[in-house]
Design a protein around this nucleic acid. Sequence first.
DNA 1: CTAGAATTTTTCCAATCGGTCAAAAAAATT
DNA 2: AATTTTTTTGACCGATTGGAAAAATTCTAG
Lengths: 212, 212
Amino acid sequence: MTTDAETPRPITRIQREKQEVILEAALDVFSKFGFRGSTIDQIAEAAGMSKPNLLYYFKSKEDIHAPLLARILDTWLEPLREMDPKGDPLPEIQSYIRRKLEMSRDFPRESRLFANEMLRGAPGFYDILHTDLKDLVDEKVKIIRGWMAEGKIAKADPYHLIFSIWATTQHYADFDIQVKAVLGRERGGEGRFEDAARFLDQLFLHGLSPKK
Amino acid sequence: MTTDAETPRPITRIQREKQEVILEAALDVFSKFGFRGSTIDQIAEAAGMSKPNLLYYFKSKEDIHAPLLARILDTWLEPLREMDPKGDPLPEIQSYIRRKLEMSRDFPRESRLFANEMLRGAPGFYDILHTDLKDLVDEKVKIIRGWMAEGKIAKADPYHLIFSIWATTQHYADFDIQVKAVLGRERGGEGRFEDAARFLDQLFLHGLSPKK
DNA sequence: CTAGAATTTTTCCAATCGGTCAAAAAAATT
DNA sequence: AATTTTTTTGACCGATTGGAAAAATTCTAG
C-alpha cells in the first residue's frame, strides 16, 4: 500500500532528500559569505557531492539561493504576525521579544543570511520589503498605537519600537562571535540567551531609571 | 651612498591621494559584498583606475581590506571609551547612545563593513575581539556596575546593556534599506535618525511601562 | 534479466579571478 | 634639456569561477 500514486512527473525520494541536503549546505555557506562570496564548489563540498551533481538538482547558484531567502522572510515574520491585538499589550510585546530571541538562538544561520542580503542592498528582495513587510508592520503599528492611546503602554514611536526589537534580538545571531568574545568563557555559554532575555525584559519594561 | 636618514621612503602627494581614493572606493565595495564577494576590478573601477594601477598602490586585496578594518574598530569604540565614570550615569549612557547613533548615520559603510566581517566569523579580527575589545568592555562594565551599586541606575546585566546599545544603533546603518522600506517616504527621510534618537532615549530611560 | 529512467562522474569551456611584468608615459629632479 | 624617478598601461598568467555536455553508473519497473 504505497501512499504515493504514480505521477507523470515523479519527484523521487532521493530528489527531495538531496535537495534538502544541498539547501542545508548552502545555508551554511551563504550565511557566512553572502551570495557573491560563496561558490558552488564550496556548497557542493559542504553537501558532500560534486559540483555537476549539485547542478543536476539546482540549475544555478541563484536557484539555490532564492528558495532559501523565500523561506526565511516568511518564518522570520511569523512571531510578529502572532502578536495578538486582543492580548495584554505588555505581555504580548514581551512574548514577541522572547520568540524573536529564540529564533536567533535556534536559527542563527537564517538570521545571518538575511543580514547578508540586507547589507548588499537586498536586490530582488526590495519589492517584498516595500509591500508584504511594510504592510505587516503598518498593521501591527496600528495595534501598538491603539494600546498607547488606551494608556496600556507608554507612548513611543511604534516603528522604532519594532526596529529595536529586531535589532536587539537578531544581534545575538548576527554578531554572535563578538558577543561570545566579549562575554568570555563563563558568561558566553548557552546561558547567554537567558541572560539576554532577562535583560531585554527589563529594558523594554522599565528601562534603566532607578527604582524609587 | 644610501641616504636612509633624509628620505628613506618618499611618500608623494599623489601616493597619499590615490591611496585615499582607493580606500574610499574599497569601502564602498567591501561594505556591500564583503571581502570574498568583492573583486579588485570592482574596486579599481569605483576608484576610476585600472586594476594594475590600483595594485601599484596596494600589493593585494588583503592589503586594501586590512587598513580599512584596522581604522574602523578604533573609531568605532571611541564613543565607548569616552563614557566618563565621573559623569552622571543616565546622561552618560544617553550621550553614548546618541554618539553611536550619529556614527551609524554618518558612517554607515563602515558599520556595514564591520557587520560583514562579523557575519563571516571575523577571521584575523578574532584576537582583537578577545583582547582589546573585551578589555574595554570589561572596564566599562565595572563602571556601570558601580553606578548600579550606587542606585544611580537600575540593576541590569551591563554586558547585555552594551550589546543592546550596539544593536539598536548599528541597526540603522546595517539594515538601512529595511528601515527605509518600512518607514516609507514620509517617515523614512533623514528625520528618521531624530525619531530613533527620541525613541531610544525613552526606551533606555523608562521602557514601555505606562506612566502612572 | 533487461529496458528505461534517474543519478553521478568525467571532461570540458568561456569568463572572471587575483596578480605579475615589461614597457610606455608622465613627473620630478638635475 | 637630459635624466632619473614615479605612475600608468596593456598584455599576459595560472587558478578559480559558474555552468554545459555527455558518458558512465545506479536504480527501478516489468
